[in-house]
Design a protein around this nucleic acid. Structure first.
Lengths: 334, 334
DNA sequence: GGTCATTGTGAAACCGGTTTCAAATGATGC
DNA sequence: GCATCATTTGAAACCGGTTTCACAATGACC
């Protein structure tokens, strides 16, 4: 019971394979209704499905895009993949997913594999990447969309950048509006550019609201729950213990929250806390966490749309995705 | 600047394309070292990469496997995908990921798409599936591996089943050993088979330890944090409030824990809690959660291995994956 | 009734590889 | 010096589709 080919269908319908091809491709080329019927019956009878492999050979399109992520298990990517897929399916594309595991060499090997498979394009969503990847893709003539890392400018590459400033500015404004006077920030490791950016965005926004930069306390730690706990303990010892806290991500916010609570503080009564990311846990937490949300699903959709535009022959572009504040129950008046 | 083909290489090296093919395929067929060198130089000079599409056409293998999941954003799948990928990469396979979104029709469409693309096989890891999927795959002669849902028996299909009993039995034994006398269970919706299985496994294990089935309190709710909170409030009102609690998943355990704590109970001092799943949050929580762990990464690896065996011509098989207890800090003596 | 445009279909070339088959070359044995 | 055999290579067929080109049949028009 071997898989039927177009020749089998042609033989069964008593026509040439060219005719069968015309019927299935649906392009309008005057086919007698009677002939069309015979072909369609043969297709149904044999349960024939044209081979995308053979089609790709002549069409030079595989309707497949590669997607590189650092680590699928990272919850950030779940929603992004969702967006990519929904947008891709609608356009008839499939997604070849590949994990770099934060390893540049593995990433390069995956890129090569995508080139060999003649993917139509690549979405590079890994947290880091190398210019060598882009060079390899450029040589193969494969368009790409990269998320947020600053590689060298390159043809056929569109970029998505995430701007945290608007959301963080909203966060600061929200806290000021509630009447807070003593602010703290729990930052990630300051060796990371994103950690510095987030800190600066917060301090700048406060400054705009009339709070001098050196009036806000800053502690740092790893971007984990435990990191948030430890950082809070550092802030706690300062003279002007903050009543309002902005954390570099939701995990640290949760850590700080649980540490503060175990010291008897009430949230939001004694301490208001804002996170960043809007992970699935944020709305379920007690109290539901006010946070600066990243539109992950939309980033995925946008990335796929940008790639489709490149595939349609459009010029590369740069798009900025903005963040925004989601107000829940972890913030209130001091 | 078009992508070079094997003919370009042949012309550049001054040999026939058959010779080039022999050099790149590496199969031993007596090639003069001098000739080989010339071909390799031409390949390097042109940066030639053979098209996997063209190769697939003759070889009838795409070195691609499809993977159906209900929802990539569900943290369960992250680790599974990881396992599939690691095992797949090692064997030279790529993974076409597809989300069913819990929709059987969408799943069917995805299966058809995989058939059209001539994937070598399919991993069906979605929480549910239909026999029609398997029928379609069988007709196309595509082997499959399914995870844990009981479809009709079918040729060319291997199965992985997850057995929660060992881990749950360990959990019950652990609580008994700590000296607990009053037990509670927070179950998921009892319309789900898995919810009933987990409850029964727990009650059976307690019975084996000498605790009558009707001595343990059972409450149910949705499998969320909030569901856990609500279920705990129900148990709280019972006369013999439990000192030891086993929850159907980690989220409910976290919910129950936070509800109990907000009532002034200490965990594990006043109440011991065990979850199930071992989500990433479990070890980071305060206190780190004792839980029945599912070997997600191993499930992924196993699934891919089973598929590779099928592809190598082996007979379908059934493998059972067992769970085990991970003891952390949310359990202690009453 | 002949010319011409339109419709409907098949033969053959093509996409980029692999594989079969045959032929050319060189080495070996007697 | 010639038959024999192994090594090395190329021509051509093939994989399963799409597309071009040619041709036959039909209908419109004068």
């Amino acid at each position: 019971m071997t898989v039927p080919t177009i020749d089998d269908v042609a033989a069964a319908a008593g026509v040439s394979k060219a005719t069968v091809s015309r019927v299935i491709s649906g392009t309008f080329t005057h086919i007698r209704p009677e002939t069309r019927r015979r072909v369609e019956e043969a297709i149904a009878a044999l349960n024939y499905r044209p081979s995308a492999v053979a089609r790709s050979l002549t069409s030079h399109r595989t309707n497949t895009v590669g997607m590189l992520v650092s680590d699928v298990a990272n919850p950030f990517y779940g929603d992004v993949i969702h967006g990519v897929e929904d947008e891709g399916i609608a356009a008839g594309y499939n997604v070849l997913l590949a994990n770099t595991n934060y390893d540049l060499d593995r990433g390069m090997a995956l890129i090569r594999s995508l080139i060999d498979r003649r993917a139509d394009g690549v979405l590079i969503m890994s947290s880091s990447g190398s210019d060598a990847w882009l060079r390899e893709l450029a040589q193969a003539g494969m368009p790409a969309v990269v998320l947020d890392w600053a590689g060298r400018k390159s043809e056929q590459v569109s970029r998505i950048e995430v701007d945290f400033r608007p959301g963080i500015a909203e966060a600061a404004a929200h806290l000021l509006e509630l009447g807070h006077k003593r602010f703290g920030h729990i930052a990630g490791p300051l060796t990371l550019r994103t950690s510095r950016d987030r800190r600066d965005a917060f301090l700048d926004a406060l400054a705009e609201g009339g709070v001098a930069r050196d009036r806000a306390l800053v502690a740092t730690g790893p971007l984990t729950i435990e990191g948030g706990r430890e950082a809070w303990r550092l802030l706690r010892e300062e003279a002007r213990t903050p009543t309002a806290l902005f954390c570099a991500n939701d995990l640290m916010a949760i850590g700080a929250l649980s540490a503060a609570r175990s010291e008897g503080l009430r949230v939001p009564g004694d301490l208001s806390i804002i996170g960043l990311d809007d992970i699935w846990l944020a709305p379920q937490f007690d109290p539901p966490l006010t946070t600066v949300a990243l539109p992950r699903y939309e980033i995925g959709k946008l990335a796929m749309r940008l790639l489709l535009k490149l595939l349609a022959g459009a010029a590369p572009e740069r798009q900025v995705v903005v963040t925004s504040l989601v107000i829940r129950k972890s913030t209130g008046a001091p």
